[in-house]
């Protein structure tokens, strides 16, 4: 504990400091020999009012624990913000003591918390991962290398028999990729709602996407339509070159040559069709997942019903080096 990364303090019930570690001195500026024997009031900033300390002591007495943000003062008079946790220590017959550990809240920590918040927001804006009706079932799993992801997907019913959707990957990771993914999502949705000829839609997207991506960034995408009237899966690809189709005969690896979006101007993209039967399954993925698969597989390693559990088990074998999205579609 003496060499622990976070500052630590042990004080008695009267607030007299009995022990501090080295990190305490580094953050507060008080040498150990000065702090020990002094009151914890040497740290008091005056920022918190009486109400704060009442709630603090109430929590400590009632729950035996307090954690939260607090402003304290260094030996040089400067104020700092810390995340503090305090626990009582009871030694039989020797009275009550308090053990405190804190972390200074720096700009870096604020930024980390902010990115985590952005990740939550991003997940809340994504479509529901499970779409289940009488005709088709879609389940998706997404994992970001960091809290946020540059992968994106969406789907919507054009009418009660035609479902249109996409899976895409803005190259890069972290906040910059996530910011671009947010605008690319809007671009994709608006384009696909107006253009159901998927090759043409990708051509239009390729021309406009450059305005929304950083200079040396590009995107991979696969757009699709599940047409329950004609029993077809129509798709067009831009750099997402592989997906899998499971039918009554087995698992088929479908590969299509296509260029990424945002690499070159005036690129043609083709639309392809697959015949769909009841019970068929399609496994669409970004390259973060594809790169983890062996080149030949007999059965798909992630089940439709158990996608979340299976993907954790599957990904557990690897060091994840990319954002990952897997979308499984089943025709019922």
């Amino acid at each position: 504990m003496e060499y622990a990364h976070d500052p630590m303090v042990v004080a008695n019930a009267e607030g007299i400091i009995l022990w501090v570690n080295r990190a305490f001195t580094e953050v507060t500026g008080y040498p150990q020999e000065f702090a020990v024997g002094n009151s914890t009031r040497i740290l008091k900033s005056g920022v918190q009012g009486l109400d704060f300390y009442e709630a603090f002591w109430n929590s400590l007495i009632v729950t035996g624990h307090w954690s939260g943000e607090i402003w304290n003062r260094r030996s040089d008079g400067s104020l700092y913000r810390e995340w503090l946790e305090i626990y009582p220590l009871n030694f039989k017959g020797q009275g009550r003591y308090y053990f405190t550990v804190f972390q200074e809240i720096t700009n870096e920590r604020d930024i980390t918390l902010d990115i985590q918040m952005a990740g939550k927001l991003q997940r809340s804006l994504a479509p529901k991962p499970i779409l289940d009706n009488n005709d088709v079932r879609i389940q998706t799993a997404q994992r970001g290398m960091y809290s946020v992801t540059g992968d994106l997907y969406d789907y919507l019913w054009l009418n009660d028999r035609v479902l249109i959707g996409f899976i895409a990957d803005v190259m890069g990771h972290g906040m910059s990729a996530a910011m671009q993914a947010g605008t690319v999502r809007v671009l994709f949705k608006e384009t696909l709602q107006q253009m159901t000829a998927l090759g043409d839609a990708l051509k239009v997207l390729n021309k406009s996407i450059g305005h929304y991506l950083a200079n040396d960034t590009f995107a991979a995408a696969l757009c699709f339509i599940v047409d329950l009237e004609s029993h077809e899966f129509r798709y067009a690809s831009a750099g997402i070159h592989t997906f899998y189709h499971q039918d009554g005969l087995g698992l088929h690896k479908i590969q299509v040559d296509s260029l990424y979006l945002g690499v070159a101007e005036d690129v043609e993209f083709n639309e392809y069709r697959l015949r769909l039967h009841r019970g068929d399954r399609l496994y669409l993925m970004t390259d973060g997942f594809y790169d983890l698969l062996p080149s030949t597989i007999q059965s798909f390693p992630v089940g439709l019903e158990t996608i979340d559990k299976d993907i954790e088990r599957f990904l557990g074998q690897f060091l994840i080096q990319d954002d990952i999205t897997l979308m499984n579609i089943e025709v019922l």
């Binding site: 040396d216 960034t217 590009f218 690499v263 990319d322």
Partner: peptide
Amino acid sequence: IDSAGLGVLIGIHKR
């Protein structure tokens, strides 16, 4: 090489 590596080559190519 994965897409991150391709990204470097594409970025340099475009520049």
